[in-house]
């Protein structure tokens, strides 16, 4: 996309485009800056100023509290483990299932696809799923956070359609060269799908990172609680059930502490994206084959 000739209108568009996107970036990012600022601010400042980007007095008290015990560090460790393992399992299962389904002549394909689409809108609900997880002996195991949600049917359908758009000539020539379907999948399809893999790595990783509900249902051992569950503990106490808030035994968590936990629980997954971004560009390869 270099050295394109640019019309005056195009140049106006460029200027507008840059300004608009820069403003959008600011608008989306500034509230997070407020959260970061709040995590370093004193309670009285948070109460006194409705919104600020730099605290008047900077204090690390909230972080000192968070890191005064190993609890949060351990829970981040749990989250990282579940996210890495879960993303690997999910990608593997999604890719291996999506590829055969992208082959239109496969017998039984339509039945399977219909059954998959069905699960996107119909589900058994919390209690029956719990029963299955329990009967598989997964309770209190980190696998309970991964296996019941290993394939997202939405992602499966999207990956399948990505595969469908791959040029079939490639597969055919590979087959002529003596590759089996399995060989085509691992040696041709997977290498060509880097942007897809990068995208769904991100999607699954973010999903696993943000999930707290499955941990709430399936994990009793607090040593295996992910960081989002701790965040939930702190955020919910004060907000949802305000009227019934049980503050008699323990004071409600301080605002700065809540914000610090948000920062601690969010930043690891945030920095994951820029790292993945460069892999999106590698999809160029795919196009060059087409041409």
């Amino acid at each position: 996309m270099h050295k394109m000739h640019n019309t005056p209108l195009g140049r106006v568009f460029d200027v507008f485009n840059h300004i608009f996107l820069a403003l959008l970036g600011l608008a989306t990012f500034i509230p997070f800056v407020y959260v970061i600022a709040g995590s370093f601010a004193t309670e009285s400042e948070i109460a006194a100023r409705p919104f600020f980007l730099i605290p008047e007095t900077i204090t690390t008290a909230a972080y000192d509290y968070i890191f005064s015990t190993t609890t949060f560090i351990r829970s981040i460790g749990v989250s990282v483990l579940v996210t890495v393992l879960g993303t690997l399992v999910s990608l593997l299962l999604t890719m291996t299932m999506a590829y055969p389904l992208s082959r239109k002549k496969l017998l039984g394909r339509n039945l399977i696809l219909n059954l998959v689409v069905f699960t996107m809108v119909f589900n058994g609900g919390m209690i029956p799923t719990y029963m299955v997880v329990k009967s598989l002996g997964l309770l209190d195991s980190l696998w309970a956070l991964i296996l019941p949600v290993a394939i997202n049917p939405f992602y499966l359908i999207i990956v399948k359609s990505f595969f469908q758009n791959l040029p079939s000539e490639l597969e055919e020539s590979a087959k002529i060269d003596g590759c089996s379907d399995m060989g085509v999948f691992w040696r041709i399809v997977i290498p060509l799908s880097k942007p897809v893999i990068a995208t769904f790595t991100l999607f699954y990783a973010v999903f696993y990172w943000n999930d707290f509900f499955n941990a709430l249902l399936y994990i009793s051992d607090s040593a295996k609680w992910p960081v989002q569950l701790l965040l939930q503990q702190l955020m919910m106490v004060a907000n949802m059930d305000f009227g019934e808030m049980d503050t008699m035994l323990a004071d409600p968590p301080e605002e700065s502490l809540k914000m610090a936990v948000v920062v601690v629980a969010t930043v690891p997954i945030l920095i994951f994206y820029p790292f993945l971004q460069k892999h999106f560009a590698k999809g160029i390869l795919l196009g060059s084959v087409k041409g």
Binding site: L93, M97, L115, T119, I127, L136, M182
Partner: peptide, 23 residues
Amino acid sequence: WLYVLLLPGIVYFVLFKYMPMWG
């Protein structure tokens, strides 16, 4: 080989999506 690739996914859907469907 395509069915072999498909199998783990099908097991997943049967186990975690259709077994609880009685709900």
